[in-house]
């Protein structure tokens, strides 16, 4: 799963740094030469801030992303589907952990990040604030949402911050099955009864546009993109990635015998790309602002899980302290 950078800082904020210009110049030269930046290397304050924000949002998205799917674990239609869904959710928890660890190397703590998520200060991908209404949503999410995430994450394997890049390498390696199992669900439904096919079509209708929005605002309205590209935190633009996703996904939808909910979608020979209709950015920004259909539900489920687990964390810590004392005696 992936989140685009949702919390914007003003250009002013980024320019107000007290970074020594000669260090900034040396840093930028290293990045331009495709060197990786490691935790103890000097880095501009704004680079550190941007990364903490982006990596922690990415981590939060992995964790919150398990909620829409967790909704279906007990209702998976077969033992095979259930085992697969459990494995996918477990992977996503793991991905969250890789990413939290990467963010921590920049000087933030796990506790701070979790607090920021639970208090609503930190963002996560807008996609997870849509409800999962039917089993077909498990197919559509794996195929489209994980598909969009992979498209976004592949270039991040070469992002300039070493720990983030290494986390992305692991995540990309593991994510491929997520997309394939989703497409498999869609194939099964699309080739099933009329009711199953309708369910698949309905899921595609509901998840298509939110998936397209996962790539973030259009390039001309993405104020921090230029700096992130210069610092090689980001390697490709939102619109380029979105176009690539559409180009590879449309034939997959057609192979299912399903239609896409965009009347303006058509192959453009001259551009060698699919043209697509206007995206409802008002909806996107509303979801970013926390007006997603199940935003409140997601956060209360997350906070409840954290609070319900408190006694386990406390017991484990108390046990460790007791054992250490006994060993010392």
């Amino acid at each position: 799963m992936y989140t685009t950078e949702l919390q914007k800082v003003s250009a002013l904020d980024n320019s107000l740094s007290a970074d020594p210009p000669e260090l900034v110049a040396a840093f930028e030269a290293r990045v331009a030469a495709d060197a990786f930046i490691e935790p103890k290397d000097w880095m501009p304050q704004a680079y550190r801030r941007t990364l903490v924000r982006q990596i922690s949002q990415h981590a939060h998205s992995e964790i919150v992303g398990t909620l829409p799917e967790g909704n279906w674990i007990t209702r998976a239609p077969s033992l095979r589907r259930k085992a697969v869904l459990l494995a996918k959710v477990q992977d996503e928890c793991g991905h969250g952990l890789y990413l939290y660890c990467a963010a921590e190397t920049l000087g933030t703590s796990r506790e701070q990040m979790i607090e920021a998520l639970h208090s609503g200060k930190a963002k996560y991908s807008t996609i997870f604030n849509y409800p999962t209404l039917t089993w077909a949503d498990m197919g559509a999410i794996g195929w489209l949402v994980d598909g969009a995430a992979i498209m976004n994450q592949v270039p991040l394997q070469r992002t300039s911050y070493g720990p983030y890049a290494r986390a992305m390498v692991r995540i990309c390696k593991e994510e491929s099955f997520h997309q394939r199992q989703g497409y498999e669900i869609m194939m099964t439904l699309a080739n099933g009864s009329a009711a199953q096919k309708r369910m698949a079509q309905d899921a595609l209708n509901r998840w298509w546009w939110p998936s397209i929005m996962m790539f973030g605002p259009p390039d001309d309205n993405s104020p921090n993109s230029a700096q992130s590209m210069r610092w090689r935190i980001k390697r490709e633009s939102n619109d380029d990635l979105r176009q690539r996703f559409i180009d590879v996904t449309v034939p997959q939808a057609l192979a299912l015998g399903l239609t896409l909910p965009d009347p303006e979608l058509k192959w453009n020979e001259a551009r060698d790309h699919y043209d697509y209709g206007p995206i409802d950015w008002e909806e996107f920004y509303a979801v970013v602002r926390g007006e997603g259909q199940v935003a409140k539900e997601r956060m209360s489920a997350r906070v409840k899980a954290w609070e319900d687990g408190a006694w386990v964390r406390e017991a484990a810590a108390a046990h460790a302290v007791k054992k250490a004392k006994r060993n010392a005696a």
């Binding site: 793991g94 890789y98 660890c101 796990r110 593991e174 484990a316 046990h319 460790a320 054992k323 250490a324």
Partner: peptide, 23 residues
Amino acid sequence: VGSVHAPDAELALKHARDTYTRR
């Protein structure tokens, strides 16, 4: 390969197994 949080070495090993060796 990375890091984990844990209250002691024994749990750190278990968390490391779950986090980094699922395959």
